[in-house]
């Protein structure tokens, strides 16, 4: 009986499988209880970037904690690469970056990575090269001898990511990786996630900021009050089937009038007409990049 799930190819293929998961927190001294997650079913396929989206308090962190075995489910179960989350060995090939991580402030960046490396039984020269590699990857080589108490939020997030990668995991779980990080820092983190995907690492992340993760997620699930309300490929989810947008450059007023007329003639309705704008975030990024590059030129 126990062997059955392992034999089915689909089961083994899923990096994360959540089946019928519910989590109820009893409220002390009252008869009430709070349901954080209700009957959740979820699958993250190996190699994809999955975004668990939803507003604050929708049960994202709870779900991630249960998947990582940090909390116990009330009902249902979760598995990582086919192993139940309650087993220590399910976390063998997993890296985790919690929300707003605080590490031991008295350690330097390098010491932090060495500590976590030792916990994963990475030793000796392998640990040394791995630490160097990861510091390089997250761009903290220059800050490696600084205490974490002097790190900025973005740097902490990056050292946290490096720490999650120390044991060369096949699955990386990131809880709100871009929360509280400035746009440049958040872009760096997104680039790192894309980089992970290219190396074939599965990424499961949670976020309440849809715009920040929409460009990197293959699939997203939207949680609201502990229930999965939507799930699927991002383009599918946000596409509005009966609408389409044209973006024109150098179009004369006459041409626009012509197109509007054509549209009316073929029973279509023009809903909106506006000048294109960029997103504020993109504007900010461009502006900071420009100032950086002009500063370089000035030298």
């Amino acid at each position: 009986m126990n062997d059955l799930p392992r034999r089915s190819g689909a089961e083994a293929g899923a990096a994360v499988a959540v089946e019928g998961l519910s989590k109820v927190f009893p409220v002390p001294f009252r008869r009430k209880s709070i349901t954080a997650v209700r009957d959740l079913n979820l699958r993250v396929e190996a190699g994809e970037v999955y975004g668990l989206l939803g507003p604050n308090g929708s049960g994202k962190s709870t779900t991630l904690k249960i998947i990582l075995g940090l909390a116990a489910p009330t009902r249902g179960r979760t598995k990582i690469f086919g192993r139940d989350s309650s087993l220590v060995e399910s976390r063998q090939a997993v890296g985790f970056l919690p929300e707003n991580p605080y590490f031991y402030k008295f350690l330097t960046g390098e010491e932090t990575l060495r500590f976590f490396g030792k916990l994963c039984r990475v030793n000796g020269s392998r640990l040394k090269s791995r630490v160097r590699e990861l510091l390089e990857l997250v761009g903290l080589t220059n800050a490696r001898d600084q205490r974490l108490s002097t790190y900025s939020k973005g740097m902490l997030q990056r050292i946290g990511l490096a720490q999650a990668l120390i044991n060369e995991p096949k699955l990386v779980v990131l809880d709100e990786p871009t929360a509280g990080v400035d746009p440049a820092g958040s872009r760096d983190i997104r680039n790192l996630i894309v980089d992970l995907k290219q190396r074939g690492i599965t990424v499961l992340l949670s976020s309440h900021l849809l715009t920040q993760v929409q460009e990197i997620c293959d699939r997203v699930g939207i949680l609201a009050r502990g229930v999965l309300v939507r799930e699927g490929h991002l383009e599918e989810l946000i596409a509005i089937e009966n609408r389409c947008e044209l973006v024109l450059e150098n179009a004369s007023e006459a041409l626009v009038k012509e197109i509007e007329k054509l549209a009316t003639n073929s029973n279509a309705r023009l809903i909106d007409r506006r000048k294109s704008t960029t997103t504020l975030e993109r504007l900010f990024l461009e502006a900071t990049q420009e100032s950086e590059s002009s500063a370089k030129h000035a030298k």
Binding site: G69, V94, L119
Partner: peptide
């Protein structure tokens, strides 16, 4: 409180 316990126990450590 510091959530360091998460990073430690999310690794394969009993």
């Amino acid at each position: 409180d510091d959530r360091t316990v998460y990073t430690i126990l999310a690794k394969p450590i009993p």
